[in-house]
Simulated assay, not measured.
Amino acid sequence: MPRSLAVSDSIVIQAAPAAIYAQVSNPALMGRWSPENLGATVRGGTSDAYVGMEFDGHNRRGPLRWTTRCTVTAAVPGQRFAFRVHAIGRRRPLLRGRIATWEYRFDPVDGGTRVTETWRDDRRAWPDPVANAFDRLATRGHTFAEFQRGNIRRTLRNLKEAMESAPRPS
């Protein structure tokens, strides 16, 4: 069975696109919303995203922990933030390869911003049966597309709750 290579979901948040972008584009903060990511260490120490910026994402799924190396591929304040995951390892991301791309779009709508989160499977060279078998083992019975669909939904709900409950500037 061919695998799904991308999933996305959207939510409307009652906040300005620039305010949401400022939070999402700082990889160190992602652990506040993601069910799997624990945050990140930005290489070079800056928190303002720019194309080419690298960071190491710290992740957990049940008892498993791993680190990914990521590079920002889009950083348009208030509009779009994206990065590709290109290395992985237990403590340090030593195993290199095309893994995934994550993208966030921020579209102004009445009452706030529509935030769309998209995950793309970059393991194009993997045969579908091999990828599906690996995915089911790594996610306890799901494909990565199914698994990420749930993660995206939870991340967006958590982001909405955090942004809408934050004090607003007067």
Rank of each mutant, 00 (worst) to 15 (best):
S25W: 04
I88D: 02
V76W: 02
G44E: 10
W33F: 08
I99N: 07
V12K: 00
R69L: 10
L95P: 08
E103C: 10
A82E: 06
G111S: 12
A16E: 14
R92N: 11
R43G: 00
C70E: 08
Y104I: 05
A49T: 06
P63Y: 03
N37S: 15
R136W: 11
P17E: 14
Y104T: 01
H58N: 07
V12P: 02
G111D: 08
P63T: 03
E117F: 05
N37T: 09
L95F: 11
G45M: 04
Y104G: 02
A15D: 15
L29F: 01
R120S: 09
R96D: 05
R96I: 02
A74H: 08
G97R: 04
F55C: 00
A49C: 13
L38S: 13
V76L: 15
T118I: 03
R69V: 00
P63L: 06
G89I: 04
A138F: 12
E54L: 14
L95C: 15
I20V: 10
A87V: 01
P63M: 01
R61H: 05
G52T: 06
A28D: 09
R61V: 01
D122C: 08
P35R: 10
L38W: 05
R114I: 02
L95I: 14
D122I: 04
V51R: 09
H86P: 11
P77K: 10
R96T: 05
D122M: 12
Q79P: 01
P35M: 08
R96H: 12
R98V: 01
F81A: 02
R124N: 13
E117H: 08
D48I: 06
I99K: 01
I13W: 02
C70Y: 00
T116A: 13
A75H: 02
A75G: 02
F55M: 01
G57N: 03
E54F: 09
L38P: 15
R91E: 09
